[in-house]
Design a protein around this nucleic acid. Structure first.
Lengths: 158, 158
DNA sequence: ATTAAACGATTAGCTAGCTAACTAAATATG
DNA sequence: CATATTTAGTTAGCTAGCTAATCGTTTAAT
């Protein structure tokens, strides 16, 4: 109330959607990382495993596309997953450039642990959301993702 | 409809708020980084400058608290900002532990550029949002941030 | 007054992202 | 058939985050 003169041409950053999004983003990533750390995984690895649980034996380029990640990011993640014996790679027969990524038994086994953590994430942190918000949020978030990725990479391979 | 058997104990990750949030998060951060790169800044630096534009001469610990960041993160960012001559630090007189961070002239001057980029971010990427969504989103995002930071760090210093 | 505890900042080292630059393989093109 | 272009993956190097460990300073306790 005592700083009334400031807000003329200035952007009130703290109220922009972009600003709020950034703040949520950072906070969320930290929570996610901490939670998945409890089961010995890093956040990024979880998302990669997620894709393999849906379809095993994807190539790196497939994973990159589905996760909207750059190739080197995927390459590094897989290296990490190989080290902890959750996936293994095989050079593609027909195409000497590609490597296919397969879940190991341990990789399959992680699924329950991840599910459990994920459930906690959804219930513990989002308990204060009411029914309406729970309905709206997925739509809004999807819209935002499309806005920032430029395309809808959830449908682009159909 | 044809996959009715699957969804009993499995989580449909792709529909959870946590999952969607992660996807938005990654996409948005990349866009933000690219946009601020146009004016020679990194995303994190922008948020730090923002705080200094609001109140110059903060200590690192103040910045960390306001931005909900860990101390080493702030320390590194400031190092980067010093290198490009946007801020300078001064050891606090009364307390030999603290360093106060001050904007340089160049630091002040960046404000218009950042405002311009920020405006673009808000208008270019969020054009598809309707009035209702524009109203709801800030509330929802604030709620999410509170959920993930645990506390409401926007009010804690009052 | 001395010792213990708390605080502010830094260093080291990690993952998650990125881009740029590279290698190697596959495909087009002349 | 030789060459050029595209594609898949990796390496190097950057920032943004984090935690753990450390150092110096300040404050509290005995």
């Amino acid at each position: 109330m005592k700083t009334g003169a400031v807000m003329e041409e200035e952007i009130i950053f703290q109220k922009t959607i972009s600003y709020l999004l950034a703040r949520v983003t950072t906070a969320y990533k930290t929570v996610l990382e901490r939670h998945m750390g409890l089961i010995g995984l890093h956040a990024g690895q979880v998302f990669l495993l997620l894709e393999l649980w849906t379809e095993d034996g994807l190539r790196q380029v497939d994973l990159a596309r589905r996760l909207s990640l750059a190739a080197p990011t995927v390459s590094k993640m897989i290296k990490g997953l190989i080290e902890i014996n959750l996936v293994e790679i095989e050079r593609e027969d027909g195409d000497g450039r590609s490597t296919r990524v397969y879940l190991t038994d341990q990789g399959h086994a992680m699924r329950d642990d991840v599910n459990a953590q994920w459930l906690e994430l959804e219930t513990n942190y989002l308990a204060d959301l009411n029914e309406t918000e729970r309905l709206i949020l997925p739509e809004l978030l999807t819209k935002l993702r499309k806005a920032y990725t430029g395309a809808d990479d959830a449908e682009e391979d159909q």
